[in-house]
């Protein structure tokens, strides 16, 4: 088990090297000149040359990559041409915000989707099934940013229950930074006032974000439960008198969840890279907004930094999924 984890972690290295090379090259091949953009519209050729020299952009591509790669290991992820701040510093403020949003959305999606799918399968072709199918079809068909706007209109503007946007108001004291995830920091430091505020702000974007994974998880769970319910061992369990609840929530659930787990892992990675619309609508200071801005200004270092960050998380989440899969299914050997 430990060896398996170590080996998988070691596999991260070639993945990240490949990813960084790819993004590094693509970023350079993009049309337009970031140096000219950063130096400003009235810059003289001398100004441009000095900016290029400052960021090492006058050197050959291979040398630039080598500098970057060795810098990564030293904790120097480069400097944003635009904000002139170190990328690592930027990431450490934006990544936790996005992580908090995505985690909240995934927790919601899993906590509702799995029981909903299970129930839909049990009450197949009866009203709980129709309800869950209608809701999941609606949720999967509706663009996330549009749902976000509807939520804002309904819950913030008309009902006034929840704040319109933002992550934490400037007028309040934030909890002391431990993990960077406000809700968890507030919990850890016992600051329940701040926890309430953080949750209020988190609610709408997290729900908007959770709907499409929720729909997919529900549908996957429904399909795999229907399949498991037809297995011979379910008949045996019924024939020997086990209760409906025990069969469903113990024996069927564990079998049915395995197939859904893969989707959960994939969705997690997909959400990490796809937060930009929700972050824009809710003015959520996260990785999506940061990355978009970097792309629009052709700011190399943040683009590469964000990509590596999401890539690493994606690999880690899928490693976690594989480990849980091994726990759920004894026939899977982790070697």
């Amino acid at each position: 088990m430990i060896r398996y984890i170590l080996r998988r972690l070691l596999l991260l290295v070639p993945v990240l090297v490949g990813l960084s090379m790819l993004v590094f090259t693509i970023a350079r091949l993009l049309p337009g000149d970031p140096v000219r953009l950063a130096a400003g519209p009235n810059a003289t050729p001398a100004d441009i040359a000095s900016v290029a020299k400052e960021f090492g952009l006058d050197r050959p591509l291979l040398a630039q990559y080598w500098d970057y790669a060795t810098g990564l290991l030293r904790g120097d992820w480069g400097v944003s041409i635009f904000s002139r701040r170190p990328v690592l510093e930027d990431l450490s403020t934006y990544l936790p915000a996005t992580l908090e949003l995505v985690l909240a959305a995934m927790i919601l999606a899993v906590a509702i989707g799995i029981p909903a799918g299970l129930m839909a399968a049990v009450y197949r072709d009866r009203w709980p099934d129709f309800l869950s199918r209608a809701v999941s079809l609606g949720a999967i068909s509706m663009p996330r940013f549009f749902l976000g706007l509807l939520f804002q209109l309904g819950f913030a503007m008309w009902l006034g229950w929840l704040p319109l946007s933002g992550r934490f108001p400037l007028t309040e004291d934030p909890p002391s930074a431990i993990t960077g995830l406000l809700t968890i920091d507030a919990l850890l430091s016992g600051n329940f006032h701040a926890l309430g505020i953080a949750l209020q702000h988190l609610a709408l974007p997290a729900i908007a974000m959770s709907l499409s994974p929720l729909a997919t998880i529900t549908r996957m769970m429904r399909a795999s439960t229907i399949e498991v319910l037809q297995q011979d061992y379910v008949t045996t369990e019924r024939a020997l008198g086990l209760s409906r609840g025990k069969i469903l929530f113990k024996y069927v659930l564990k079998n049915a969840v395995s197939a859904t787990l893969t989707v959960i892992g994939l969705y997690f990675g997909w959400l990490l890279g796809g937060t930009v619309l929700v972050e824009t609508v809710f003015d959520w200071p996260g990785l999506g907004l940061y990355a978009t801005q970097a792309v629009l200004t052709q700011d190399f270092m943040p683009i590469i930094g964000v990509t590596l960050c999401i890539g690493t998380l994606f690999v880690l989440v899928n490693l976690l999924v594989d480990l849980v899969y091994g726990l759920l299914n004894p026939r899977v050997r982790l070697r």
């Binding site: 011979d232 061992y233 019924r238 024939a239 020997l240 008198g241 395995s258 759920l328 026939r331």
Partner: peptide, 24 residues
């Protein structure tokens, strides 16, 4: 019926590989 199943009436089925739950 549930009180009778497994207690008064026992059942064995055809294929032993599919009649045991694989993950328990």
């Amino acid at each position: 019926l549930r009180a009778l199943r497994g207690r008064r009436i026992g059942m064995i089925f055809q294929d032993p590989t599919t009649n045991l739950n694989p993950v328990f």
